[in-house]
C-alpha cells in the first residue's frame, strides 16, 4: 500500500446512518478472490434493485467517479469483514467523512489506505444539507487534518498512529520485524511464568 498526503476529487453524500458492513459488502459476494476486484459489489443491494438494474438516483450511481463519501454516524459498524473496505477502495473511494465509524472498520480502512475522517455531527448535518445528492469538489489534506468541500472547510480527527500509517503507507508486518527480539523475549517469559497460557498438549517453548 502506498502512502498519500493530499487527495483531490469528487465528493458525494450518502444520507444514511449506520451504513453497516453487511450493506457495504453483502455476504453472498464474499467468496470472490480479491484479485477479481470488489468495486462492483459496493452497497450492491442499495445500488441495484431486485431486477439487478441500477437505482438511478442512488448517489453512487449519480456520481460513479466519486472518491470521497460523506455519511452519517456509525459508518462501517458491524462485521470485521475487511472486504467491506476492499469494496470501497476498489470502487475508487479514498476517504469517508462521518461523525463516527465502527472501530474494526476504521482500522481496516487505515490498513488499506482509506481515510476514515471523523467530523463533528453538526457539521456533517449542514454539509449533507448543502450537498444533497450532487457532486462537490473536494480536497483532503491528511497532514493538517483538513478537508475543503464545496464552500466549506472542515477539520477532521484521526489517531496520530493512523495518520502516520496513511501518510507513509506502512506495512505493519515489516515494521514488526524490528521487534522480533522483544517478541521472542516476551514469549519465553510468558511460557515460563504462565505455562497455562499455552494450550494443553501444545508444547510451550
Amino acid at each position: 500500500m502506498s502512502g498519500w498526503t493530499r487527495h483531490t476529487g469528487k465528493a458525494v453524500a450518502l444520507d444514511l446512518e449506520s451504513v453497516d458492513t453487511d450493506q457495504l459488502l453483502t455476504a453472498r459476494f464474499m467468496t470472490t478472490p480479491r484479485a477479481e476486484g470488489y468495486g462492483r459489489y459496493l452497497l450492491y443491494d442499495l445500488r441495484y434493485n431486485s431486477a439487478e438494474q441500477p437505482v438511478p438516483d442512488f448517489p453512487l450511481n449519480r456520481v460513479p467517479d466519486a472518491s470521497v463519501l460523506v455519511a452519517r454516524r456509525n459508518f462501517g459498524g458491524g462485521s470485521s469483514r475487511e472486504a467491506a473496505v476492499y469494496a470501497l477502495v476498489d470502487f475508487g473511494i479514498r476517504t469517508v467523512i462521518a461523525p463516527s465509524f465502527g472501530d474494526i472498520f476504521a482500522s481496516n480502512a487505515v490498513n488499506n489506505g482509506l481515510l476514515p475522517a471523523r467530523v463533528d455531527e453538526a457539521e456533517i448535518d449542514a454539509l449533507i444539507d448543502e450537498l444533497r445528492g450532487d457532486a462537490a469538489h473536494v480536497t483532503v489534506e491528511l497532514e493538517h487534518g483538513e478537508i475543503e468541500i464545496g464552500s466549506r472547510k472542515l477539520a477532521f480527527t484521526l489517531d496520530t498512529a493512523w495518520r502516520q500509517k496513511l501518510i507513509n503507507g506502512w506495512d505493519d508486518i515489516d515494521l514488526t520485524g524490528h521487534h522480533h527480539p522483544a517478541i521472542a523475549r516476551y514469549r519465553a517469559r510468558r511460557a515460563k511464568a504462565q505455562p497455562w497460557a499455552f494450550p494443553a498438549g501444545k508444547a510451550a517453548g
Binding site: R81, E82, I173, H179
Partner: peptide, 21 residues
C-alpha cells in the same frame, strides 16, 4: 475481532498492533 490485514499480521508474528481503548 480483527480484519484480514491484522489476521495476516497475527499469523506472521503472533502479535497485533492496537491502541488501548
Amino acid at each position: 475481532g480483527i480484519g484480514a490485514t491484522e489476521v495476516a499480521h497475527v499469523l506472521a508474528t503472533q502479535t497485533v498492533w492496537q491502541k488501548r481503548p
